[in-house]
Amino acid sequence: MNALIIGQLAVSGALMGLVYALIAYGFQLTYATSKSINFGQGELVMVSAFFSLTLLDLGVPYALMVPGGLIFGALLGLLVERTGVRLALEEKSEGWVLLTIILGLFFFSAAENIWGRDDRPFPTPLSQNPVQVFGIDITRMEISVAVGVFAIMGLIELFKRRTLLGKAFEAVSADRDAAELMGISATRTVMLSYGLSGAVAALAGILVSPITTVGPTMASAMILKAFSVAVVAGLDSGFGVVLIGMILGALEGLASFYIGSGWREAPGLVLLILALAVRPTGVFGKAGIRKV
């Protein structure tokens, strides 16, 4: 019985952890091309979720809402790149950290005023009946999370490996200057990565909303855990974020049951600080050689 409870908590937690992994993957996408990340990524998740909800409210069918939400997220990502990141990158400063935080703040405030401060339910076409696997209940929404996360990550990884543009992406990440010499515009590649990252954030929002409801603060706890996942796993490995995300999610489920729900954030944060102490570049990150 006890084992079943543990299993149940771990599995639900791990599936939730996939959402953290997806958001963290969004950090990796932009980090690869520009060594920068969007600190307002959580707001992108939230605003895109609200936008998708509005689409549904307007009568847009579910199947169209998803691409609509993704495109909206991608546009927001492009906006962040243009206003918050590009100038700082050109000047080789770290101003983008502050600027992306500021943009996040702006999106948050805008969402609060446009859609209100209350949490709203997000409809789903899936039935509420859970599926039983080895005695563990898994809701259909959780399954959709897993399917969505693996689908988009798989697609993007395929894009990176199989198309020339994707290879250009990796070339910029390996050596920006040399890539420019091949005729690859680094600026456009960075733009593309921010667009993709925004779409990924939007998908995270659409997938998680039926479970958590939609509200201005829906992403503030998630984003912290996504940060933890990104730092612990390192900013290079897509496989790493999935693994760490699931472990973190499972730990979190167990912690909130055994220690108290208020402590659910704690394992991720402790894991983060411990991981930093042991391996500053992340568990799956590449250790660089100091050069002079």
């Binding site: 200057d177 420019e180 010499l181 091949m182 005729g183 690859i184 515009s185 600026t187």
Partner: peptide, 8 residues
């Protein structure tokens, strides 16, 4: 011009 432009 940008390096990428000149390369093209």
């Amino acid at each position: 011009l940008d390096a990428s432009r000149i390369a093209r």
